[in-house]
Design a protein around this nucleic acid. Structure first.
Length: 454
DNA sequence: TCTGGGGTCCTCTGCCCT
DNA sequence: TCTGAGGGCAGAGGACCC
């Protein structure tokens, strides 16, 4: 199990590929002076957290999701680098090309990891482990980054195997890992059931606490618990799922990336945001960022969700579904601002988020506008959007939507779309921060608040 | 001295309709 | 006309992932 093995074609169809300290290594390529030093990538502000840490920093106890301030105390010699996703996305795209040169069945999990179904790739390779070693080399050649690969009969086992293949954290520095770990069918249960139960996908802090209460601490313990007991502890669906995983049963297929379910943008503010006007102006900015990404990806959506986090960390969400899909910041901000009106903002908020779901594919406003003359636009509204019927709705006009009433127009207007196209063009040419809605400019904007998203 | 951002999926609840 | 059951759906929130 610990060494790569030759296997008959098709026996172990699933690979899990996980980049090693991905963000850190991309930053080291950008700035070679970081090589060999402890590095923390994440938010550097007062409320920032660690997104990724080098193995040197991990040796000092730093881990992802830890507040950056705490990470600095644990590892004072660490260099803190603010996340810059443009470089990560670029490297991720290059890695995805390597994966797709082996198989079209690639399921991206994050920028730095993916599942591959290689059951159809054995015409070119003798075994899945040979594919795994080929991928490692090809990724290294393409982007000069290291990855770990798990090979197994299903996703859960492949994921655990890739973890087992990773470099080890050690006070003296990182120790090289196996690189590739193959879990044979014969070894599956021994390998799986020796793991801590929290290693399973779907066991977070809450589920772990509940499982610990019934004396379950390893996957082996979990497999021994009667299903009824598990169901009464963590719920029907979750219990049945965990019971199957603990026995090595995981028939989830590798899904190729499809349409996203939602697109969102949220921000934690350096200092709590107070006053309805400031919250609304931030909502305009966030809505604009979400709308921009929707258009860039040729999407529009019908359900708008606003999320706020209060100073005591309590979360509140409000959602509203409108009859027609939208993709402009103006229409999105309109719904978001109405939803904000139904939230208690007393005491301020530390986080504000705007999300759009119920997505569907649509021609982007940019494409739409570029391919239609002014006369054509005049003759027929931009497709495939249902325009708001009346641009001159009085301020007290109302749109009935389910059990809620949203005042004023709720769809994209032709004017909204043309304005959005103009904004996109200006930002593409001069940068994302060069132009903003007047209502979003009300804010005083500390440096930490000036982000416009990925 | 604090606890991000961008997602997905599930459960529960309430409402509407048949 | 009223009532209850049950399905479908939307909204809210929780848990989890990287």
């Amino acid at each position: 199990m610990s060494q790569p093995q030759r296997r008959p074609p098709g026996e172990l169809p699933i690979l899990h590929v996980d980049m090693d300290a991905f963000y850190v290594e991309v930053e080291r390529m950008r700035d070679p002076s970081l090589i060999g030093r402890p590095v923390i990538v994440g938010g550097s502000g007062r409320r920032g957290v660690v997104a990724s840490a080098s193995y040197e920093a991990r040796a000092a106890g730093v881990h992802a999701a830890m507040p950056t301030a705490q990470a600095r105390r644990l590892c004072p010699s660490a260099v803190v680098v603010t996340s810059d996703f443009s470089g990560y996305i670029e490297a991720s795209s290059a890695i995805a090309e390597v994966f797709e040169s082996v198989t079209p069945h690639v399921e991206p999990i994050a920028l730095d990891e993916a599942f591959l179904d290689v059951s159809g790739a054995h015409r070119l390779f003798d075994s899945s482990s040979e594919i795994a070693w080929h991928l490692r080399n090809a990724v290294r050649e393409a982007v000069a980054l290291e990855c770990s690969v798990g090979v197994a009969s299903n996703k859960t086992l492949a994921k655990l195997a890739s973890v087992a293949a990773k470099p080890a954290v050690h006070p003296d520095g990182p120790r090289p890992g196996l690189g590739v770990c193959v879990v044979s069918v014969a070894d599956e249960l021994d390998f799986l059931q020796a793991h801590r139960v929290e290693a399973l996908w779907g066991v977070g802090p809450m589920t772990l606490r509940r499982l610990n209460e019934i004396n379950v601490s390893t996957v082996g313990d979990l497999a021994a618990v009667p299903l009824e007991r598990l169901v009464s502890t963590v719920g029907a669906a979750h219990g049945a799922h965990l019971a199957a995983l603990a026995r090595g049963i995981d028939d989830r297929p590798v899904h190729r990336g499809g349409l996203p379910r939602s697109v969102s943008h949220e921000q934690t503010f350096e200092t709590d945001l107070t006053g309805a006007d400031r919250v609304r102006s931030e909502a305009v900015r966030l809505a604009d960022a979400v709308a921009s990404r929707l258009r860039a990806n040729g999407l529009s959506g019908r359900t708008v969700t606003v999320k706020v986090k209060h100073p005591d960390f309590s979360l509140r969400t409000r959602a509203h579904t409108i009859p027609e899909p939208i993709q402009t910041g103006h229409a999105l901000a309109h719904v978001a601002q109405e939803l904000i009106g139904s939230l208690d903002l007393h005491g301020g908020i530390r986080l504000l988020g705007v999300a759009v779901s119920n997505l569907e594919e649509t021609a982007s406003a940019e494409t739409e506008s570029a391919t239609r003359s002014a006369d054509e636009r005049e003759a027929a509204p931009a497709q495939p959007h249902q325009m708001a019927l009346d641009l001159n709705l009085p301020p007290d006009a109302q749109t009935e939507c389910g059990d809620e009433t949203i005042r004023g127009p709720t769809g994209d207007t032709e004017l909204d779309l043309r304005l959005a196209v103009a904004l996109d063009a200006i930002r593409n040419r001069f940068g994302r921060t060069v132009i903003a809605h007047g209502s979003a400019a009300l804010r005083d904007g500390t440096p930490g608040e000036r982000r416009w998203g990925r």
